[in-house]
């Protein structure tokens, strides 16, 4: 099986996609990423704008008009969700195999 060239996702992209499971504005997204990552990933405005632009181009997320004309709402697309799940699978495997080796589980 050939792996998607977008994998692995960066930590930033992973958290942005995860946070957008629930559609939201850019600024709320910034706060949500910080919250989901336990304060580890703090995105500045310019960096987040660039990341959003890039994810829109890749069609991992979509933008929707909102009742607030000054702010768009972003949401995870189907492509975005499948790439997020693929990266989750990849990391689950890493966790499982690491557990076996480091904590003395039986190797397969």
């Amino acid at each position: 099986m050939r792996r998607d060239k977008n994998l692995p996702l960066t930590e930033t992209v992973y958290y942005i996609l995860l946070a957008l499971k629930e559609p939201t504005h850019g600024y709320v997204l910034m706060q949500k990423v910080e919250e989901l990552s336990d304060g580890q990933v703090r995105l500045a405005a310019g960096t987040l704008y660039g990341a959003i632009e890039n994810l829109l181009k890749k069609e991992f997320i979509i933008s929707m008009p909102s009742d607030d004309v000054r702010r768009k709402v972003y949401a995870l697309s189907q492509t975005g969700e499948s790439i997020l799940r693929a990266d989750y699978q990849r990391m689950s495997h890493i966790l499982k195999i690491t557990e076996q080796i480091l904590n003395g589980g039986a190797p397969k």
């Binding site: 850019g26 600024y27 910034m30 500045a44 405005a45 704008y49 004309v69 000054r70 702010r71 768009k72």
Partner: peptide
């Protein structure tokens, strides 16, 4: 406008 709003919000 969206770009400026994001900066102003933060």
């Amino acid at each position: 406008i969206e770009y400026r709003s994001l900066f102003e919000d933060s």
